[in-house]
Design a protein around this nucleic acid. Structure first.
Length: 549
RNA sequence: CGGGGUGUAGCGCAGAUGGCUAGCGCGCUUCGUUCGGGACGAAGAGGUCCCGGGUUCAAAUCCCGGCACCCCGACCA
């Protein structure tokens, strides 16, 4: 068919046009024969890798009693994405968006002793999340496929060990599908950010912006890219005594640099914002800028910088505002923790403090990341100190250390060697298999269509004949049957269509090896073979086809 | 949820100042000619013009209400 006009992404366009998937409703797709074959390949790879780290496959229900979600509080915290439905007797159910609420009580029914742990369970199943806006074809749907795995451990140390194994298994999954994954320190969410990692596949179609280091494969989300902002050399010097000095300068950082003969990063910058509760001082390292979007995200409301009249009304010394002895509430960017002996305003007109130190001279209760990191070419990898790149990426998986949160909600404990009851520590590991299918298309296609990696291709060989000569069709059919007998996954395009159409369809569908039978090839006593990734083709003997797999 | 847009044949679209049997391209069926990069001719099939209400002699077209879908944003284990 014609490509749908509203297909916004390569995966939607090619997968629909190529007959892999068909849209049923926004974010809801049918998987057609070709698409299902790909999905099964993906699932099998995931299975093998999860099994390799001790995962045991199970199948949990899609319908979850609402009580389970009330028990963890996620009935409320996830209420915007939960699909709800009622069963007989007016019983409330939710359609599972994830399965901690099922797997945790499930494990509780079977495992009580330290001898039963660790336990690792997973399933591959449709998940339901009422996304505010489904988009990008199969990349963000309301019903989507996911492999979700849960691990149960007697202590955090065991979880930590397993978590690293799972991380490696994840990397193997992507690698086997021809994808290069970057491990991204995730930007928080419902659980603490230091306990979660995402796996990012770079592609221009990605929804996320990440900074990545090509040499050590370390990456970080734009939101928390401060890890790439090195502390300036010499910033962490010994604290010196606080000193108040006269400072005839204007309000800009540049003038402070000049007057005190110091670098910009040594200045503690304060910007006053107007928020719903009044005025708020926001501190950041002097060489960095505050990203208003991030600040708004953090505060959860729209903000603007305070107007001069507002500062005057509040009797603030414009250009000399600082957290030292100020009546204003303050928050600060994490970057100010790196620097000792700041220069900053003294909250008096034309007076500055030198050697101001966090904790000694002023305190800030709330820290966040809201420095504007976009476009900063000087960002460096925190591990190997090499320059990092800003890239678009698709989140193709994530893993979490859940701690005891869910175990506590359901009273999942074990009895240790001494007979004492102890809490269970959990991890969870998700891969969107349907999203992965879309991701592969995004990462591997050209203007003609998809280029499937061999490991997930719906078939290994795309066989077709050109021309209507009976001997040509017969030869093609014989080859088809022979390959099938040999156990080769072969799809035979037996349509009587024009050459251009069949060849273009082959490119669109993207099976790795194309085998063509025609009058020409018969005259040369062979078949033409061409790889999807290559432009050239060659004539070979029919029995040699399998050598190209 | 805010902003913008679109709903007409399986797909892509035109028709919109109301007016005759609602069109075009692709696809589909039949026949013939073609046959190595999206062939050609002929004949056909296929439509509650998103739904409901209103105005009118007359509505795909104008008005009101609803629904669905798409894009940007917000949101996002």
């Amino acid at each position: 068919m014609n490509a749908p006009a509203d297909a916004d992404s390569a995966n939607a366009r090619f997968l629909i046009q190529g007959g892999f998937i068909e849209r049923e409703a926004a974010g809801i797709y049918n998987f057609l024969p070709l698409g299902l074959r790909v999905l099964k390949k993906i699932n099998q790879i995931i299975r093998e890798e999860m099994d390799s780290v001790g995962g045991q496959e199970i199948a949990m229900p899609v319908l979850h009693p609402r009580e389970n979600w009330v028990a963890t509080g996620r009935d409320q915290t996830m209420k915007t994405v939960l699909y709800r439905t009622k069963g007989a007797g007016d019983h409330d159910f939710v359609l599972g968006p994830s399965h901690e609420e099922i797997v945790t009580p499930l494990v509780k029914k079977f495992s009580r002793s330290y001898k039963d742990f660790p336990v690792v369970l997973y399933q591959i199943q449709a998940k339901f999340r009422n996304e505010p806006r489904a988009k990008a074809g199969i990349l963000r749907g309301r019903e989507f496929g996911m492999k979700d795995m849960y691990s149960f451990h007697t202590d955090e140390k065991d979880l930590d060990k397993y978590y690293e194994q799972a991380k490696e298994a994840y990397l193997r999954v992507y690698k086997r599908m021809g994808l290069e994954a970057y491990i991204v320190e995730a930007s928080g969410g419902a659980f603490s950010d230091k306990f979660s990692h995402e796996f990012a596949i770079r592609t221009p179609a990605g929804e996320d912006t990440i900074f990545l280091c090509e040499s050590c494969k370390y990456a970080q989300n734009l939101e928390i890219a401060q890890a790439f902002m090195d502390a300036p050399p010499g910033a962490d010097e010994k604290e010196k005594p606080l000193k108040e000095v006269s400072a005839k300068r204007g309000p800009s950082i540049a003038e402070g640099e000049k007057l005190h003969n110091i670098p910009a990063w040594k200045i503690l910058k304060t910007v006053v914002y107007k928020v719903s509760g009044g005025l708020l001082g926001v501190c950041i390292r002097g060489d960095l800028e505050i990203n208003a979007e991030k600040l708004e995200k953090f505060l959860g409301e729209e903000v603007r910088t305070a107007k001069v009249e507002e500062l005057k009304t509040a009797k603030l010394a414009i250009g000399f505002i600082s957290p030292i002895g100020s009546a204003l509430p303050f928050i600060a960017d994490h970057s100010i923790k790196q620097v000792k002996n700041f220069c900053t305003g003294a909250n008096k007109h034309e007076y500055d403090y030198l050697n101001a130190n966090l904790g000694r001279d002023f305190t800030i209760k709330t820290f966040a990341h809201f420095a504007d990191a976009s476009g900063d070419a000087s960002l460096k990898c925190p591990k190997c100190k090499k320059p990092v790149k800003e890239e678009k990426a698709i989140e193709a998986g994530n893993i979490f250390k859940l701690g005891t949160k869910f175990a506590e909600a359901f009273g999942l404990t074990y009895t240790d060697e001494k007979g004492t009851e102890q809490p269970i520590t959990m991890g969870c590991y998700g891969i969107g298999n349907t999203r992965l299918m879309g991701t592969i298309v995004e990462a591997s296609h050209d203007e003609k269509g998809i280029i499937w990696p061999k490991s997930v291709a719906p078939y290994q060989i795309h066989l077709l004949h050109l021309g209507k000569e009976p001997e040509v069709k017969k030869a093609a059919l014989e080859l088809y049957e022979k390959l099938q007998r040999q156990g080769v996954e072969v799809m035979y395009d037996d349509r009587d269509e024009s050459a251009g159409k069949k060849l273009n369809d082959a490119d669109l569908i993207g099976i790795p090896v194309r085998v063509l039978v025609s009058k020409k090839t018969l005259e040369k006593n062979g078949v033409e073979i061409k790889r999807r990734v290559e432009a050239k083709s060659e004539i070979i003997s029919a029995q040699d086809v399998v050598k190209f797999l």
